[in-house]
Write a protein that binds this DNA or RNA. Sequence first.
DNA 1: AGGCACTTCCCGCATTATGGGAATATTGTA
DNA 2: TACAATATTCCCATAATGCGGGAAGTGCCT
Lengths: 267, 267
Amino acid sequence: MLPGWWQESNNLPKRQNVKTVQSIDRAFSLLEEIAREGAGISDLARSVNLPTSTVARLLYTLEDLGAIVRTIDDTTYQIGPALLTMATTVDPTQSLLAVAQPHLLDLVEALGETVGLSIPAGYDVHYIGEADSPHPVQIRDWTGVSLPMHVVPAGLVILSQWPNDAVDRFLDRPLDRFTSKTVIDPEQIRSRLEVARRQGYLWAHEEFSEGINSVAAPLYNNTGVVMGALHSHGPAYRFPDETMEEIIGQRLVQVAASISEALGYHP
Amino acid sequence: MLPGWWQESNNLPKRQNVKTVQSIDRAFSLLEEIAREGAGISDLARSVNLPTSTVARLLYTLEDLGAIVRTIDDTTYQIGPALLTMATTVDPTQSLLAVAQPHLLDLVEALGETVGLSIPAGYDVHYIGEADSPHPVQIRDWTGVSLPMHVVPAGLVILSQWPNDAVDRFLDRPLDRFTSKTVIDPEQIRSRLEVARRQGYLWAHEEFSEGINSVAAPLYNNTGVVMGALHSHGPAYRFPDETMEEIIGQRLVQVAASISEALGYHP
DNA sequence: AGGCACTTCCCGCATTATGGGAATATTGTA
DNA sequence: TACAATATTCCCATAATGCGGGAAGTGCCT
């Protein structure tokens, strides 16, 4: 049976009466259509279901702003410099956070525990942000902290995607122990990486700190490379409900896949 | 003295009577402001000089669309998933073209000769697009064609940014000769790479094809790596005017710098 | 040449965005 | 903890602004 805190992410804690601005809404429908596939005015008018003249005006505005460009053959529109420049201006960490944020919130709502993001930094994982659990009892915010990859699942799932020789170099160093349960034996670590690869997620029980359990799943960018991990953690006394490890893990994998996709990853 | 075709790029061959859509214009001012630096509603209202309530409504719309997100601390806005996803969806070649296009048009207007873009592909340069000269006599469109790097300045300027050992491997192969003027001697090529590095641009005179001269300058992406070249070429009888080689080269470098900057490059 | 489809332009109408201002929330300060 | 200062959210009357039908212009294919 599902514990009380489990709920489908119905999300949308929207404000009350607010109306959105029509023309901006429409402009973004067009942009999304164009991003999906470049097209001319009348094609676009058909696909967003608006009169041609309206679409023409909106596109003219977007073109004027540099958000879209006509391709050299002058017949179809494409996403333009202004938009691309805005996107590249954002520093990659921020952009990962921005892309992931709505998913984090969904997941917090579904799991009832804190959910966070981390990125590799040398042989450490660096926690770049989290969305907090609504629970009154919660784990401190680890944002900004770096930890050795082998003590947290976030690190282990990242490691699990590295090529073998890189893993060998990683393990060919003395590994710190954080709690009595920290796994520091290279062979045991290797077999956990295998588990992570097979399942897509990995659990750790009080290996980094007494009283904290954690799961993680890897995130991929548009070049297919691991670029970080999504994790959730909570106090050991309530997280995870033993019967839920697999379900939670799979949910995490699902959400991680959505984030990767939004980052341009195509499996 | 400047030849007749030389002119400042006054560009903007705008349409006649068209009005842009106010709310979209404003929305993009906000997006640009946010991309430059995340900020809250009232800060943004001040910087774009609009009433707070108006800005609030515009931001709400953008947030609803996922174009912006509130940062985890909930006080400032950031560029959001929808925008970033659109940008990453575009394939990199297309996005380079899109970013560069306005600059290409400016440069064509200034030089009066065809201007194009190419990207490295193994030991070749691949021509991905061009903006044509208005001249009745012009060079054929090379879009889609690949050429060995050593026969065109576009290739040479890319090579000039490679690490030495990569250049060594490149030169340690038999190099094809295309015309009597093609340079295939490794030592001569090395010294031309040096020239390219020093000047920022490089000329070639009928080395790839009789009757064609060409200049190129390298383009850098946000990670600081060469990602292609900007070049211009024209019939040898008129291009370049001998006294103009340096001025044209420097202009090319300028424009290449603008493109690189729009790609996120910071020197 | 003729026809079809796409794009650009015009203009009267009312839908829609606008912004002043009040209410509420949040933050800083004593 | 209370109070002030600032930021955000909400409401609503007003007309400015975006809207879209339709005509004119352009280009393409057969």
